[in-house]
Design a protein around this nucleic acid. Structure first.
Lengths: 151, 151
DNA sequence: CGCTTATACTTAACATGTTAATAGAAAACG
DNA sequence: CGTTTTCTATTAACATGTTAAGTATAAGCG
């Protein structure tokens, strides 16, 4: 088929690429929805986490929303400017902060939650509930694999 | 469990997040390998595509390496500076270019291909060949889903 | 208590992601 | 043939990804 490099796998069989394409497929419509409201996918994740869990410190937000601290620092600044979150100092530990979502932030979530659920339902219907569950199981299992293959 | 927002799915059951985490798990070791050589994951993808397919125009590179044109433009500039690729004008269509990998670029790939394959083998062994195939099938199928859920 | 180490961000620097606008050239079309 | 449309690639502008360094505070320890 290809005389250039037979040892390289087809991109369809490359897990990193396949994950990339799948993510793009799922995120495309979500990004389109959020663009109308003026928040990014990552900002939306942060707001969702805060709405779900209540007041959190940045470290836990980063963990739950899958963001690195440097990214989160900038995102929290942006969200504060937009009036969607507030930050206050931790009462006993001056290194830490406490981040909360504002009423305005909750309203933004409320305004988009229905559409978000509609997209989820579309995915479940189009792809199949059983396949979706299998896929999620496999992805979670992959994520729990042993640390590092450097042995 | 959580009185804040019962309608929001657990992040483990959120496909976008699950895809993100899985990708990070797979890419971490690869990035570490590439960092030692001084190329990024995306630059590596471009070089791989060129090594596999030979001379290509930027549009096809973008398609095959899953990069957007603006990103690719910058990456091609970087790779040219590093002496890993060359660019020439298309003989008949002055809008287009022809990009080729240099001997130095091929050498970089050769130097890292074995380790790359070792990481692939580790993944296959740790995760299981059957599960990996199932996962790839599901991801590819997801990618082929109907265009847009806007209807 | 004073020193060392660890923790919680923050900043910096560079690369990419993402959308929109742009410039140049080819193709379509009246 | 000339105009309009489409295509290719770049640039711009802003947000995030990523690694390393910096800053301030807390915790551990002799």
């Amino acid at each position: 088929m290809d005389s250039h490099n037979p040892s390289a796998p087809d991109t369809n069989r490359s897990l990193p690429i396949a994950l990339l394409r799948a993510r793009e497929k799922v995120m495309g419509p979500i990004r389109a929805m959020l663009a109308d409201v003026g928040v990014t996918e990552q900002q939306w994740r942060v707001l969702r986490v805060l709405a779900e869990r209540g007041t959190l410190d940045p470290t836990e937000i980063a963990d739950r929303s899958c963001l690195l601290m440097p990214s989160l620092t900038r995102i929290l600044q942006t969200l504060t400017t937009k009036g969607l979150i507030t930050r206050e100092a931790h009462p006993t530990d001056k290194r830490r902060q406490l981040v909360s979502i504002t009423a305005e932030g909750r309203q933004l979530i409320a305004d988009n939650l229905k559409e978000s659920q509609r997209l989820n339902a579309w995915l479940r219907d189009s792809f199949g509930a059983d396949k979706l569950d299998t896929l999620l199981d496999l992805l979670n299992e992959l994520d729990r694999l042993d640390r590092d293959p450097r042995g």
